[in-house]
Simulated scan of single mutants.
Amino acid sequence: MFQHLLRGMLLLGLLLGALPGQAAISDAEAINRAGQQRMLGQRIAKSYLMIGTQTRSELALAQLDASVASVEENSQLLGDYASSAAIRGAADEAGLTWQQLREQALAAPDKSRSLEMLKLAERFLAQSETLALRIEQHNGSQPAHLVNRSGRLRMLSQRIAMLYLALSWNLPDAELRSKFDTAVEEFDQGLDELHAAKQNTEQINDRLEHISNQWRFARVGFKLTEDGRYVPTVIVTTAESLLQKLEALTADYAQLAQAAR
Rank of each mutant, 00 (worst) to 15 (best):
M1I: 07
Q3K: 13
M9K: 14
L12R: 10
L14F: 15
G17D: 11
G21P: 09
A30E: 02
A30I: 03
A30T: 04
A34Q: 00
Q37F: 03
S47Q: 01
S47G: 02
Y48W: 05
L49N: 00
G52E: 04
T53R: 07
S57N: 00
L59P: 00
A62L: 11
L64K: 02
D65H: 11
S67Q: 08
A69H: 07
V71R: 12
E73W: 15
E73G: 15
E73C: 12
Q76A: 15
L77Y: 08
Y81Q: 04
S84V: 06
G89T: 13
A90P: 09
A91E: 10
A94S: 08
L96V: 11
T97S: 14
A108L: 15
D110V: 03
D110P: 04
L118Y: 04
L120I: 03
A121N: 01
E122T: 12
Q127A: 10
I135Y: 03
Q137R: 15
N139W: 13
N139R: 12
A144P: 05
L146C: 05
V147S: 01
V147R: 01
N148W: 01
R149E: 13
R152S: 10
L153T: 05
L153D: 07
S157L: 01
I160L: 09
N170V: 06
L171Y: 04
D173Y: 05
E175R: 14
R177L: 11
S178M: 11
D181R: 08
T182A: 13
A183M: 04
V184T: 10
D188R: 10
H195N: 15
A197N: 06
A197C: 07
N200W: 06
T201F: 07
E202W: 08
D206P: 07
L208H: 06
L224S: 10
E226I: 09
T233F: 02
A239P: 00
L242Y: 00
L243I: 01
A248S: 10
L249K: 00
D252P: 01
Y253W: 03
A259R: 11
